[in-house]
């Protein structure tokens, strides 16, 4: 019985000792928002639409991101400018639905849509969480500093003519059979 009593007191004392020790240990809690920990570049949070190295919009509104999105939070409408360049007339992401899975970034063939570590776009009102193209478009290349899709595609968009894109030969002269 005395042993039991000593055990009880000992275990309680051990607990208090641990707690007391920690009273004097420096906490490593990071106080947000005073301190904002830098996240790795691959962290998946707010989505942006990037531009190519020449500053033109990368998004060609191919609907692949909206097609792969598991929660259907992306919608857009493709349009063509006067020079034949396909782009998004409007582009909308409902961040209330978005689960930040990153499938859209994987699917994008032009490196336009990318996820960034910025998670501070959350609002109280659901409609404020629906971002339009002007809210998503940024002025830089994001994680891909090089890729310009329209240099690879065969369509003429004002950048280069037929045969001037990457891996292309000059257009066939259909008016002759000479080699």
């Amino acid at each position: 019985m005395i042993r039991a009593g000593i055990d009880i007191i000992a275990s309680i004392a051990a607990g208090f000792y641990t707690t007391g020790r920690h009273l004097f240990v420096r906490p490593f809690t990071e106080s947000y928002p005073e301190y904002k920990r830098p996240l790795p570049a691959r962290s998946r949070a707010r989505i942006i639409l990037t531009r190519d190295p020449e500053g033109r919009e990368r998004c060609v509104a191919c609907y692949l991101c909206s097609g792969v999105c598991p929660v259907n939070c992306i919608s857009m409408q493709a349009a063509e400018d006067s020079r034949g360049r396909r782009y998004a007339a409007w582009f909308r992401i409902n961040f209330g639905r978005c689960i930040y899975c990153g499938l859209c970034e994987q699917a994008c063939p032009t490196s336009a849509i990318q996820l960034t570590p910025d998670f501070e776009h959350i609002r109280r009102d659901l409609l404020d969480m629906v971002f339009e193209k002007q809210d998503l478009l940024v002025d830089h290349c994001g994680k891909d500093p090089d890729y310009d899709f329209y240099q690879h595609a065969g369509v003429v968009t004002g950048l280069a003519g037929k045969g001037d894109h990457i891996s292309e030969n000059a257009p066939v002269n259909t008016r002759t059979n000479m080699p």
Binding site: C62, G67, P109, A153, G154, V155, H165
Partner: peptide, 12 residues
């Protein structure tokens, strides 16, 4: 074949 699929209407 050109690298057109994202901007080609036939895609899909």
């Amino acid at each position: 074949h050109p690298h057109d699929c994202p901007v080609c209407d036939e895609g899909g």
